[in-house]
Computed example of a mutant assay.
Amino acid sequence: MKSALVFTLLLSVATPGATASSTLTVIVLDSAGRPVRDAVVSARPQGSPGGVPRYAFGRSMSQRNIQFAPGTLVVPTGTTVSFPNYDKVRHHVYSFSKAKRFELKLFGRDESRSVTFNTPGTVAIGCNIHDQMQGFIRVVDAPFAGVSNEAGKVTFNGVPGGKVQLVVWHPNLRARENEMSIVAASSVMQVIKLPILKR
């Protein structure tokens, strides 16, 4: 059975005389109204110069308890990400993704390797030793980006007024490359249903 991803956009309107910026809140829910975590949302105000990041982002995806932590990481293009191993066992981290193919051969506890991500897109991460390990690095060139939390929420501060292009990605989103894009008006609340495979 398939469910839907509900994409809710709340963008406050700048008051007269105030700076032309807003707080943008995106809430991602499934069709039953339950929050969806680990959805990556990026925002690009129309006419904004370049994709210089205006958000906090991590630079590490560790191996801990035979898992990748965090399971989903969003970074701007050009970021070097470290892969420290905190497990007692060795890991062999790799990706065959179009955005970045790499292989970090066996390394043990308290060792680390790093990779630079220069191409926007999604990089699916695995371990050649532990098949159950799966992670995702979403590389973006938009000035705003974030990962939804347990409440399905992503908040961006200081977004310029006007229209904004939003891209939402989730590994179960039933769309090309697991992502969909909309252009939203800054003064209108929008509810958009996106198809997502059952989690």
Rank of each mutant, 00 (worst) to 15 (best):
L29D: 07
T116K: 09
I125F: 04
D110K: 08
D38E: 10
N85R: 01
E111M: 10
A32F: 10
H91E: 08
T19W: 08
G58E: 07
A4P: 03
S114R: 11
S82Q: 05
P53H: 09
S95W: 02
R37M: 00
F68R: 04
A14M: 03
Q46V: 15
T116Q: 11
Y94I: 04
D38K: 00
S22E: 09
T72D: 03
M61P: 03
P70L: 03
H92P: 00
R54E: 15
A43M: 05
P35Q: 06
Q63N: 10
L104T: 00
N128D: 11
R34G: 13
S3Y: 10
T25Q: 02
T122I: 12
R64D: 14
T23F: 09
P120A: 12
Y55P: 08
V28H: 04
R109F: 10
E103N: 15
D38P: 00
G126R: 10
F7K: 05
E111C: 04
K100R: 15
V6G: 00
S12N: 04
A18M: 09
E103S: 15
K105W: 15
E111W: 01
V52F: 12
H130F: 11
L106G: 15
V40A: 03
A20E: 07
T15M: 12
V52K: 11
G51Y: 10
I129M: 08
S3V: 14
Y55S: 07
L73S: 06
D131M: 04
H92G: 08
S31Q: 08
S82G: 12
F102I: 14
T25I: 03
K100A: 12
V52M: 12
R64I: 13
F117E: 01
S31T: 11
R109W: 09
C127R: 04
A39D: 05
H92T: 07
F83L: 03
G71H: 06
M61T: 05
A124L: 14
L73W: 02
D87A: 05
D110C: 03
I129T: 10
N85H: 02
G47E: 07
R54A: 15
T19Q: 10
V89M: 11
R37I: 04
G58F: 08
F107S: 00
A18Q: 09
F57Q: 08
G71E: 08
N128P: 05
T72A: 01
Y94W: 09
N85I: 02
S112Q: 09
V40H: 04
S48C: 08
V13C: 00
T119H: 13
V6T: 07
V28M: 06
N118F: 12
G47P: 06
G50D: 03
S12P: 07
E103R: 14
T116S: 13
G126Y: 09
T77L: 06
P53T: 09
V74C: 05
V26Q: 06
G108M: 00
K88T: 11
G78C: 10
V26L: 12
I27D: 00
S82L: 06
T119N: 12
G121L: 08
S21D: 08
